[in-house]
């Protein structure tokens, strides 16, 4: 299914993500990697010292939806093409891969590349490539 190309909304949204990363760096000196922030407060080896900070950041992420609703008045367009079993598998792979590789689109893709980190550039190039290959197989080989 096609989606509309939205360069301006996307640029603006990206800018806000960037602003969030800069604010976290300025206030607490931390990289805004969502997978890191979430996984640090999960068992095993829960980071109890960083727990209040992590929970506060996650609460902020969760508050974005009601804020969006208050301003725009309706939920954003969400179209999911994958079936539920695939989404469950996707979740396990995303969580496992993000922790194993020390980051996701935010930690490596935004913060890491902004810091000119070689590790993050390799990681981002790697997950973009496997993502493209996966969607190709899913849409043009399996479903095609």
């Amino acid at each position: 299914m096609e989606t509309e190309f939205t360069p301006f909304a996307s640029l603006l949204g990206g800018g806000l993500i960037g602003l969030s990363a800069v604010i976290l760096m300025a206030s607490h000196g931390r990289v805004a990697g969502i997978s890191g922030i979430v996984s640090r407060i999960l068992p095993p080896a829960i980071d109890t010292k960083g727990l209040p900070q992590g929970l506060t950041f996650i609460a902020g992420l969760l508050l974005a939806a009601p804020l969006w609703f208050g301003i725009i008045g309706q939920a954003p367009v969400v179209t999911i093409s994958s079936n539920m079993a695939l989404l469950g598998l996707a979740g396990i792979l995303v969580g496992f891969g993000a922790v194993l590789g020390n980051g996701c689109t935010s930690g490596h893709g935004v913060c890491g590349i902004s810091r000119m980190s070689g590790r993050s550039m390799i990681a981002t190039a790697t997950f973009m490539t496997t993502g493209v290959v996966t969607v190709f197989i899913l849409r043009h080989v399996v479903e095609g």
Binding site: L87, L93, V94, G95, G97, L100, G101, S106, T130, T134
Partner: peptide, 21 residues
Amino acid sequence: RLVAGAAIFGIGWGLGGLCPG
């Protein structure tokens, strides 16, 4: 670990279209 983790992450990202944030 970095490369394997990112590769696995990308497969999941492609399958579901979702990442953590």
